[in-house]
Design a protein around this nucleic acid. Structure first.
Lengths: 187, 187
DNA sequence: TATGACATGTAATCTGTTACATGATTAG
DNA sequence: CTAATCATGTAACAGATTACATGTCATA
């Protein structure tokens, strides 16, 4: 009965967990910051908020008195927070890497506030582990297809590998950063 | 009157330009190779092929005599090839970088066969130039938001920058590779 | 009082996902 | 004969894009 939430839904949940906001506020986040991978169009956001509310994951309250037109401020419900945490702490699997790393990065970005730095580090270790088996597979595939494709095709594939290596390097760097912060911050 | 072709449509056009194929062949490319960003489901591919054919960009011919069930082999029409070339040689703009680099990489992967290595290099130079203005903007944005976000949020953003730097490094490497190949190969 | 920014929404359309249906051929 | 694989499709639905519609407030 967990009627699959699309990526945009989690992005909205995560932002609302950081700070309650109106649909317009959320649109501005998507259009002004570098979260432009998500659509800032009202036709995407307002229906998405409506769905989340119908599922009981967020609740909107009309802001009174500020004099402007009615502005509905949304905040996650306990159920919504639970759903968000489940999404973030889910182990990283092969498929998360193949279908673009955007989602994994978003999960990590929200992780500190939603589940704490210790869990952030756990997510990173899961990512690192997935990458350690994914990278050799990519390199193997390159060897296989190398003789059959064009130079530009090969170069493009090589970037796929480089980018993945870059992600692995970063994940290690991020693990040490999280662990240092976690020790230093909880004293 | 150019009724916007979605990403999947260009992926199909590009593959058909490399080698005429049936819907089933194309599905296998998406499911078996690392082009899994595109759906291998028949509900996506067959309708997409139908749309491309209706637009006159590809043409399907039923394969006779092989004894198997009818298999339709698709090939790009001259109009389809022209559309593909236009897509590939389009200069890289800021928006191409924000909305994931997948498409740019795909354009480059097809470029050698579709428009030649010289044009491949031109595409890369356009990419390099776009990155050179995009990267400083990202670094600027990081400085602005640094004080307002969590550690994990900052780390995630930093990966965005690292990944972009990685793309820039690769594009330079690819430019020299293309230019060397082009000189050596045309003698 | 007219313009533009704030703020929210809807409707038409397109594309993709999921699941199912169909039929032919090959292997056991 | 049965199951698996090859090969193609369709139908129902969910979600996104685009364009439009609406209403409020500030300011010129």
């Amino acid at each position: 009965m967990h009627s699959k939430i699309p990526s945009l839904g989690y992005a909205l949940l995560g932002l609302l967990q950081q700070k309650p906001a109106s649909g317009y506020d959320l649109r501005k986040v998507f259009s002004s910051t570098s979260m432009k991978t998500y659509s800032d169009s009202p036709g995407a956001i307002y229906p998405a908020l409506g769905r989340l509310e119908k599922q009981g994951l967020i609740r909107g309250t009309v802001e009174e008195g500020s004099g402007l037109r009615r502005r509905q401020i949304f905040r996650p419900t306990p159920k919504g927070l639970a759903e968000l945490k489940k999404w973030i702490t889910r182990p990283v699997i092969h498929d998360d890497l193949v279908r673009g790393q955007q989602d994994v990065l978003l999960r990590f970005a929200f992780s500190e506030q939603a589940v704490g730095l210790a869990a952030s580090a756990a997510l990173l270790r899961s990512l690192e582990s997935a990458l350690q088996t994914y990278l050799p597979a990519l390199q193997e595939e390159l060897k296989t297809i190398k003789p059959m494709i064009s130079t530009s095709g090969r170069l493009a594939f090589e970037f796929g590998i480089r980018g993945t290596e870059c992600l692995l390097d970063w994940s290690r760097h991020a693990i040490t950063t999280c662990e240092k912060q976690n020790k230093g911050g909880t004293s």
